[in-house]
């Protein structure tokens, strides 16, 4: 296998991504887990950049590493979770379910990767304007208009729901 700059960059992003993703699960302190998640999002964005999907990459950073993670950290720091000890039994059950989920996810991914022909892996033919804002927007508003609208409806419901829930407390 020839070593290209792209390959080097891929490993620069891929290895820390796996390490930090493991860190999210392994870390005992919730703040450390959240920080690992921030780092994982960044390395993930790096992979998106390598795939020429700049819009998705920076969307990832803006929405996840920025807004969502700051809210996570905010909540974790406000409610100090250190004192909470989950019930031993419930944790055991959760572990079994988790292992089952991980194994089935792995099976699905492995079968999907096995089915990809080798030719598709080596050369990725992409259109000229691939990954630009214009290209993504065109696809989003023509081919995937219905899913897009349904998603926005879902978000609207979530916003209204959040307001209703918060209002009852106030």
């Amino acid at each position: 296998m020839q070593i290209t700059a792209e390959l080097v960059c891929f490993w620069i992003f891929a290895i820390p991504l796996v390490v930090t993703a493991l860190g999210v699960v392994v870390a005992r302190s919730p703040v450390y887990a959240a920080m690992n998640l921030v780092a994982a999002f960044f390395f993930m964005a790096g992979l998106y950049v390598l795939l020429a999907a700049h819009l998705i990459a920076f969307m990832q950073i803006l929405v996840y590493a920025g807004a969502v993670m700051v809210l996570f950290l905010f909540v974790i720091m406000l409610l100090s979770l250190d004192e909470e000890h989950p019930q031993r039994e419930r944790r055991r059950a959760m572990q079994y379910v988790g292992v089952l989920g991980a194994v089935s996810l792995l099976a699905v991914l492995a079968s999907a990767i096995a089915r990809v022909p080798d030719a598709a892996m080596s050369t990725l033919a992409q259109p000229d304007r691939f990954g630009t804002v214009k290209a993504v927007g065109q696809v989003l508003y023509t081919e995937f208009l219905l899913p897009f609208e349904v998603t926005s409806l879902l978000l609207l419901v979530a916003i209204v729901g959040a307001v209703v829930v918060a209002k009852e407390r106030i």
Partner: peptide, 10 residues
């Protein structure tokens, strides 16, 4: 960058 100002915000 194609997403310049968006990158800055991010």
């Amino acid at each position: 960058l194609n997403v310049g100002i968006f990158y800055v915000t991010a």
